[in-house]
Design a protein around this nucleic acid. Structure first.
Lengths: 137, 137
DNA sequence: GTTACTTCCGTAGTGAGCTACGGAGTCAAG
DNA sequence: CTTGACTCCGTAGCTCACTACGGAAGTAAC
């Protein structure tokens, strides 16, 4: 709606999208966000499409896509290549699952170490340190 | 055992500990690994204690400790301060749990997106891209 | 119309954890 | 004793995603 107005300066866009100005400029340089025409002797204006695009980038990032991959996604958007987007997402899903598995192992190891530390409190050798020496799995 | 021999050159240590030579030198610069005396006109030699220390560092890293934190841990080791080590580990455990929670959310979101992509295959608008625009939670 | 904030733009710096480079010195095999 | 691999050392570069800086031009409020 207010998109046609394109009323935001870069600072307003930054606030609306909750990112730093420099991040916007950085995304423009990386080609993730287009730079609006600058009126001669004026200042660039942004609108809702830009706010939405920033939200898209941030959301994809949260989902574990790197900025390069976000770029791919944005290019797919125009091409409507659902197939390719799905393959990208499937790879990401696998990554995410592997990360979770690793972290769960770490969680268990840390938990055990802390428990043992609790039990043996006051002894000369800290079981946590010993565990670190021994390795896990 | 072969520790007293201290027979390894830096290359041998790197192989034994499965890290790059440059990583060893980097850890020495960071104070995580001590540099053995260099015999005049000779080459430094390393032993099992060094292999074990590298294993310690790598393991702590796997557990999500930064190299600075590993440094703390190594200092605690000598001081036998179990209490402090436990506090460090408890903080790390919390971090790890938060990371897991975030990733599980992402996992679900990605899974759903892929499912929808499957269903709607062939349509003009890719549901995966649409999801990315909508946000999750 | 003056003051004070923004924008613009390019370039440089940050942090974490390495990785590479280059030239001199050292060691081990044959 | 030569050849070729390895070590030493300092410094520079890398990746990722920003973040900061500085000076000129534009804009908004009073």
């Amino acid at each position: 709606m207010s998109d046609r107005a394109n009323s935001l300066t870069i600072g307003g866009l930054a606030k609306a999208a909750k990112v730093h100005i420099e991040t916007i400029r950085y995304y423009q340089r990386r080609g993730l966000l287009q730079e609006p025409q600058r009126p001669p002797g004026g200042v660039r204006r942004y609108g809702d499409t830009d706010v939405r695009r920033l939200a898209f980038v941030k959301r994809a990032q949260q989902l574990g896509f790197s900025l390069d991959e976000v770029g791919d996604l944005l290019r797919l958007e125009d091409g409507a290549s659902c197939q390719e987007a799905r393959i990208l997402a499937e790879h990401k899903l696998q990554d995410v699952r592997e990360k979770i598995d690793g972290l769960v192992k770490i969680e268990m190891a840390l938990g055990e170490m802390i428990d043992r530390c609790q039990e043996y409190q006051g002894r000369i050798t800290c079981p946590l340190i010993v565990s670190l020496h021994e390795g896990f799995n």
